[in-house]
Amino acid sequence: MKLKQISVFLENRKGRLWKAMNVLATADINIRALSIADTSEFGILRMIVPDPEKAQRVLEKNHFVVKVNQVIAVEVPDEPGGLDHILGVLTQADINVEYLYAFVEKNEEKAIVVIRTEDVDAGIQALEAAQVTILSADEVYKI
């Protein structure tokens, strides 16, 4: 099951991340998970939000370059070795991970890991075969 992630191009300039956050706040969009990839010249802000289409719309209206793409969200036990298992599965299946980021659930002893594999479908297949819990969009947004 794939999950939509929204990516935003950020110029490496003061106040740009704040501006993006401000746009989302004004549109009453709650961010479930977030990570930033930074290079010397630009950054990529990646987020999981409940309504990615709306987020894209408001950001684009404010002249941000936005891309919505698919990622995989998996649930792992919030204990040592949780991520080790997941990555072991993907490595065994010879699947390249482009990036990942994790966040911890508030009420349960579980963590959620957002994974972007080179080939998203192949990633899902491998994880499903290893009986890893893949979360649906609704499940992620409900957290």
Partner: peptide, 15 residues
């Protein structure tokens, strides 16, 4: 100016 055609969620593609 960056545009959706140039942009990607992956750093390596943007570079």
């Amino acid at each position: 100016e960056a545009s959706p055609a140039l942009f990607s969620d992956e750093v390596k593609h943007v570079e």
